[in-house]
Simulated scan of single mutants.
Amino acid sequence: MTTRRGQELDAMLSEMQNWFETNPNLPEKIEPIVLHRFLKCMHYDVEKTKTIIELNYGLRNKNPHIFIDRNMDDEQTSKGLQVSDLLILPGLTPERHKVLLFRMADFDPSTRNSVEETKIFFMMTDARFTEPDIETRAEDQNEKPDFADTYIADGDVQIVDIDGYTMRHLAYISIFVLRVYMKFVQEAYPSRLRAIHIINCPSFLDRMMAMMKPFIREEVYQMINYHTEGMDSLYKVVPRDMLPVEYGGKAGTIAEIKTHWLRHLKEKTAYLSDDKYWKIASQSKSRWSLF
């Protein structure tokens, strides 16, 4: 049975879908659940949602080497997938937040590539955004029009493990890519950032953060938590069971979680490389179709 809330969401999504598909400043297509994520991120304020969507795709098209020109079989991308671990952990926290964990798999500074690492991050999150954030039955999706409101996270929590970082690694950080990444995540990302937890902090952390601070908004900077005395302080804010086995949790090993998401990326290859979802092709749309 369709609830009143479900009817309202259906109407809002239909309106937004039409706006998106007839907007010459946007790509041709968007997945309905991705559109729903944008709306939820902006607390269902339609005008604010339109603004963040146009900023999202505007930034993508200004930086196609990061957001559009992507292929898992590319040599540099394949190497990036090997030397870094980006894990999207299963389940949601009690606050309904999704947890992402980043760490180096190869400590050699020469293996760092800011463009590829950033590209992989957005490939992974773009693939993730096409599915509910927790497992759900197909019948739930069909029978509950507002299911996405329940199965979409209320925000993201990032855990950054910088074990193995040295001063030499800082030389391989691209300031340009860092600026693009921070602007996109802070202003155009379809999920609200709720907290950043940095673990295994090195002694030179202050210099690392000094490099990043010019690109971090004050409210985001206040979300950063430094765990300098082991993992116990992290367990107080992120459920221990949600973490990989290597971090004292029960979510599976890093290899198992990574294999799951690499398989998911492979399944989403056509979507991730389809220009109709990412490239702005104004000539294919007419502004007059809005009226």
Score class of each variant (00 low, 15 high):
L234P: 10
Y271L: 04
V237E: 10
K279G: 02
D232C: 05
Y189G: 05
S273V: 12
N225F: 05
Y189R: 12
P202W: 06
K276C: 02
I199C: 01
V245F: 02
K258T: 09
R240I: 00
A281S: 15
I257K: 07
V220P: 11
A210Y: 13
R192E: 08
K183P: 00
K276D: 02
W278F: 15
K258S: 06
L272V: 12
S273G: 14
T269Y: 05
C201I: 11
V237D: 14
P214W: 03
P214F: 03
T269H: 10
M223E: 04
Y221D: 13
M211Y: 15
S282P: 07
Y189D: 12
R240V: 00
T259V: 03
P190M: 13
V245P: 00
P202V: 04
A251K: 08
M223T: 09
S233A: 07
K279Y: 05
P190G: 10
M223F: 06
E246R: 09
H197S: 05
R207T: 01
T228A: 03
M208C: 14
M211C: 00
K258R: 05
L193H: 06
A270V: 12
L262A: 09
M242D: 03
L262K: 04
H197P: 11
K258P: 05
E256T: 09
M209K: 01
G230R: 14
A195I: 00
I199W: 02
R192I: 06
L262E: 15
A255L: 09
G230M: 09
N225P: 01
A188C: 01
A195H: 00
A210M: 15
I199V: 14
P202N: 04
W261Y: 15
R194Q: 15
